[in-house]
Amino acid sequence: MVANKTAERPLTAKPVVSERASSGTGNLALDARDVHVFYGDFEAVKGISLPVHEKEITALIGPSGCGKSTLLRCFNRMNDVVSGVRIEGQILYKGQDIYASQVDPVAVRRRIGMVFQKANPFPKSIYKNVAWGAKINGFKGDMDALVEKSLRQAALWDEVKDKLHQSGLSLSGGQQQRLCIARTLAIEPDVILMDEPASALDPIATSKIEELMLELKENYTIVVVTHNMQQAARVSDRTALLWLGELVEYNDTQTIFTNPSQQKTEDYITGRHG
């Protein structure tokens, strides 16, 4: 049966990007156009075009090492700070190419926040972890309120409200990850890029994060990398499958999980590959 299907659908097909996924109804928050990323001579992302819709959750899935994190980092120019990286193509944010020469990457990162794959709180107090980004970006409101709001949003407030001045590193791995999320929320970005935000969390914290994402969707655009198929299915509006640096299929999540047009996609989501 499996062999049959493989025969019907060639593995090396052109990426299938559905009409709806690429045009969609809402506005585009981000639009990657033929993006290539090279680490030295190694091409980690091989010409991916991926429109990201406003106020939606877009999930990037794919086996380990396929370039999900690399692509995600392109969206807020975090790859700029890696030495030996070369990026080709365009990424439009509100119609403006963020790689254009006059664009300041600092401004890009302030609008497009990021939660990293490994929790990396600052070696400072919990309070400062949340407040620092807002402070350097000239936040003018009530800092205490902002810190509380961000920590509440990240479902961390109850656990840390009595020890705001302890080091962020004294928290558990999962708490640290939520602290990083709170830190990103505190700068109130337009887009939040999340690289496996729940990989170190227990099921309860994970579901809190997922609820949080659904809540944030009201105001923010989210791009999330995940290895957890159920999570992608539960929270995302659209899903893209990457494979060895290429985009295999991009469609709305419903379609990807119920009626994928690519053999690889079906194999991957049912667990027959990576």
């Binding site: 700070v81 990162r109 990021m114 990293f116 600052f122 350097i136 970006n137 700068i187």
Partner: peptide
């Protein structure tokens, strides 16, 4: 990862160095 964390919240290189790299 510490440098990335600072860049990720929109710090300039100098803010990153002064507030995080140098103290560390």
């Amino acid at each position: 990862s510490l440098r990335n964390a600072a860049y990720g919240v929109g710090a300039t290189r100098w803010q990153m160095i002064w507030s995080h790299v140098l103290p560390y």
